[in-house]
Design a protein around this nucleic acid. Structure first.
Lengths: 111, 111
DNA sequence: CGTCTGCTTCGACGTATGTCAACCTAGGAG
DNA sequence: CTCCTAGGTTGACATACGTCGAAGCAGACG
């Protein structure tokens, strides 16, 4: 279900005006990081050793556990995280290529 | 000539878990780019010659003029754009340092 | 089997957000 | 002054979104 192929979603933001379709795709990813709770969850996963963490390790962000699960699902749908169940626990892991793609979009022209 | 004197908003997303305050600040910026219309407006300004554009040049994004104005205001509040009136027209310009700061946050650990 | 634990899904609720039509303001042209 | 154009503001509306409690589901363990 998840193509591991890394294709650049869109050109840098300053290269040319986005089409409606490009804007839709890109906005989904930025919107995923546009929530404080999701940002805390994401940084918690990303900064964890081995780049992965189980939900129990990161769910101390001030909201209920169902809400944590809801936000992790959103991050997964945006392609920023992947999840895998191992025994009792579910581990989340960052998808570095997607993150790198977003970084490339923010590259200024002169750099 | 261009010192990488970037706004030290927050460390890279993979450095450590964000605090609630950091997440709030950062989420505001990402959320600003989390709307398709805003993304089209922003890329239209950013890709314009001289890095600036008047509203009349970029307002063909499929929504009404008040909505365009509303989104430009949001981008301005997020610090991504600045505006200046010159005669009849209002020109919007990208704030490169803020954009670069966001790019640094998306920098993977190995880079 | 039954129960406990970790996590997800469901259903409901309040708030935030995108959108538009109508109106308002600023500045140039006559 | 009047009129026109470029944009911003207001108010209202529908939808999206974040949040929670309750219920459901999957493994581990006895």
């Amino acid at each position: 279900m998840l193509p591991p192929d890394v294709e650049p979603c869109c050109p840098p933001l300053s290269e040319r005006p986005f089409t409606a379709e490009e804007a839709e795709r890109t906005a989904r990813m930025f919107r995923a990081l546009g929530d404080p709770v999701r940002l805390r969850l994401f940084t918690a996963v990303a900064s964890h050793p081995d780049g992965e963490a189980c939900v129990c390790d990161i769910s101390d962000v001030g909201v209920s556990q169902p809400t944590v699960s809801h936000h992790l699902k959103k991050l997964k749908e945006a392609g920023l995280l992947t999840s895998e169940r191992r025994g009792t626990w579910v581990f989340y892991r960052v998808e570095p290529s997607v993150l790198a793609g977003m970084g490339q979009m923010l590259t200024p022209r002169a750099a």
